[in-house]
Each structure stands twice: as structure tokens, then as C-alpha cells.
Simulated scan of single mutants.
Amino acid sequence: MFRIDEDGMVRSALIEARRYTSLERGDMPVVNGIVVHQTGGSTAQSTFNSYANSTVGAHFLIDKDGAIYQTASLYKRANHVGLLRSRCLERHNCQPAELKRLQAATLRQRSTMEHGKAFPDRFPSNRDSIGVELVGEYNRNPEFGTVRGADEYLYVPVTDEQNAALRWLVGELRRLLSVAAEEVYRHPQVSYKTPTEAATASW
């Protein structure tokens, strides 16, 4: 078990604080979900190097050996989701008028429409979700002969140590922040990302 201090930092012997205030984009008074990512890089240090000069990142990073780092306050938003998928489109339950608008919209327009909704009519977004990154690179799918976008990349499998740490971390966050089990997602489930990202993550 762990606790969260007044700065939104976790107090636990199992989590090392590596806070990057440049990732924090404003207050996050409520947490409705957790989004699990893979970094695209092969080491934790490469992610730390990126975070030092970036405004895009997540709240936690789990290294391949299972070490957990907290990189942003749980009381602050972080840019980790990207363009938001339409929840009603994914669940096949849009009202006819909204379905027509969504089908005519670009992905960016769809995302803007989703951000105008209150949770739970939309997926958790940057403004109300915790991001957890798993160190893991991607490689080109050898079945692709030419570059055709995100689908041609394959992320490496998540390690057993990472999954053990992820299960513990997600369990603690859900308990402390009252996040429903069905509101924990892999990144591609809520945004337009490489389908294999975090595909082997389990919690």
C-alpha cells in the first residue's frame, strides 16, 4: 500500500520519484481512468532524457526490470493520450444524429467533439487520467515491404517484471483514486496509436 502526499507524489519504498514539472499541464481534480503506454525506447534513461526537454509524458514509468518511477504529480494533468477516440463509435451505441456528425468528421474533429463531453460519455483523457509508461521499443514488422504508417510497427513484449509491477501499481491507484476496473485502457483503445502498443501488458 502507498499514500499520496500534498504534492501528489506517491510515498512508497517501491516507487522512486523522478518528477519532471515540465510534463505537468495544470490541475487534475478528479481521476476517471488509467492509460497504459509503451515508450518506443529501449531504456528508462532514454525516456528521462526525452522528458527533460518535453511537455509530453506520463505520470509513471516502469522499467524492464520492474522498477517504478513517478515522473509527474497525480494532482496535475499530463499530455499522454493524444487524439481521443469516440466512445460511442467504439461501443457501437451512437445516437443517429451524432453518428452522422462523427462519420463526416476528421480524427481531429472527432477528438474535439469528444473533449466537449463529460465523462463517462467519453473515454478518460489528458484532463482526467493517469498515464503509465512501460519501457519498450518497437520494430518494423517484416511482413511490411514499404512504410505504411503506425500499423507496420511491432512493440516488444512487456516483461514479466513489468507486468508484476503494473498489476501492483494499477491496483493501488484504483484503490486510492476509486477508478473502475473497466476504465483502465491500453493506449490504442482510447487514441489513434500503433495497435501493438502495450498489447502484452496485463493488470
Rank of each mutant, 00 (worst) to 15 (best):
I4N: 06
I4Q: 07
D5H: 03
E6T: 14
V10Q: 00
S12I: 08
S12N: 11
L14Y: 03
I15L: 07
I15D: 07
E16M: 11
E16W: 06
T21A: 14
S22H: 06
G26A: 06
G26W: 05
D27V: 11
M28I: 06
V30N: 05
V30F: 07
N32Q: 11
V36T: 02
H37G: 00
H37N: 10
Q38Y: 05
Q38M: 11
Q38E: 09
T39K: 01
T39M: 00
G40L: 03
T43I: 04
Q45T: 13
S46K: 14
N53W: 07
S54A: 10
T55C: 02
T55E: 09
V56P: 05
G57H: 01
G57V: 11
A58R: 08
H59Y: 04
F60K: 01
D63E: 15
D65R: 01
G66V: 09
I68C: 01
I68D: 02
Q70T: 11
A72V: 03
H80T: 06
V81Y: 01
V81N: 03
L83C: 03
R85F: 10
R91T: 14
R91L: 15
H92I: 11
Q95G: 12
Q95H: 13
E98Y: 13
E98V: 13
K100T: 13
K100M: 12
K100I: 11
R101E: 15
L102K: 07
Q103C: 07
A105K: 02
A105Q: 03
T106H: 01
R108H: 10
Q109E: 15
R110N: 09
T112E: 15
T112Q: 15
E114P: 04
G116K: 09
K117Y: 01
F119M: 03
F119N: 00
R122Y: 06
F123C: 01
R127N: 09
R127Q: 11
R127G: 08
R127D: 12
D128F: 03
D128P: 08
L134G: 02
E137Y: 11
N139A: 08
E143A: 14
G145V: 06
G149I: 09
D151Y: 05
Y153F: 13
L154F: 05
L154A: 00
L154T: 10
L154V: 12
P157C: 04
T159F: 00
D160I: 13
E161W: 01
Q162A: 00
L166E: 01
L169A: 02
L173P: 07
L173Y: 07
L173I: 06
S178F: 07
V184P: 04
Y185K: 08
Q189R: 09
Q189A: 14
V190H: 05
P195F: 08
P195L: 04
P195E: 06
T196S: 15
E197W: 02
S202G: 08
S202L: 09
